[in-house]
C-alpha cells in the first residue's frame, strides 16, 4: 500500500489504525478510537509509544483539547466526502488549540478535496486507494491565489 500522503509526499505508513471493535496491537504507533483512549487516558499518556486518536463525524475538536500535548496525531474520519465538518475541526485544532502534531484525513474523501483540506491544517491524507493518492499528489495547489486566510497563508487582502 502506498496510499498515504504526508507533507506533500507519498510516505510509508507506520501507524496502525485501530477500529472500535478490534484489539489494540501490542507495540508500535497506534491511532485509537476516542473512547478507547479516553477509557485509559492516564495509561496511554504515560506510555512511551506514539499515540494518536481518531475522531468520528460526531466527535468534536473540544473532545481532545485536554490531551493535545500527549497526542502525536489526530485523525479526522470523513464518513462521506460531502460531510465538511472535518474542515472546521482541523482549523479549530490548528488555529484555536495550536495543535502542532499530524492531522490526518481518513475515511471517505476525494483527491479533489486535498487542497481545501490542506488550507484547513490537515497535513496527512490516507487516500482510499493508491491510485487516488497519486492523483491527489497533483491536486495540492490548483490555485495560486487565496482570498481568505487559512492555516497555510494570510488572506489576499492582508497581502495586497
Amino acid at each position: 500500500m502506498q496510499n498515504l500522503i504526508k507533507d506533500g509526499q507519498l510516505q510509508h505508513d507506520d501507524w496502525a489504525l485501530v477500529e472500535e471493535d478490534t484489539p489494540v496491537p501490542a507495540s508500535g504507533p497506534v491511532i485509537l478510537p476516542l473512547a478507547v483512549y479516553r477509557g485509559q487516558k492516564s495509561e496511554w499518556d504515560a506510555s512511551d509509544r506514539n499515540i494518536g486518536v481518531w475522531l468520528n463525524d460526531e466527535q468534536m475538536a473540544e473532545d481532545v483539547t485536554d490531551s493535545l500535548d500527549k497526542l502525536a496525531l489526530i485523525a479526522l474520519r470523513f464518513p462521506k466526502f460531502a460531510d465538511g465538518r472535518g474542515f472546521s475541526k482541523a482549523r479549530l485544532l490548528r488555529e484555536r488549540h495550536a495543535f502542532a502534531g499530524e492531522i490526518r484525513a481518513i475515511g471517505d474523501f476525494l483527491p479533489d478535496q486535498v487542497f481545501y483540506m490542506g488550507r484547513c491544517g490537515i497535513n496527512a491524507f490516507a487516500c482510499r486507494t493508491d491510485e487516488e493518492a497519486s492523483i491527489a499528489l497533483a491536486l495540492f495547489a490548483p490555485f495560486s491565489v487565496r482570498y481568505q486566510g487559512g492555516t497555510d497563508s494570510a488572506s489576499l487582502f492582508e497581502q495586497r
Binding site: F87, R119, Y147
Partner: peptide, 13 residues
Amino acid sequence: RQWSTLHPEFAFL
C-alpha cells in the same frame, strides 16, 4: 464574494 470564493472551510456545508 471574494471571501466566499473557494473558501476552504465551507465548501461542503
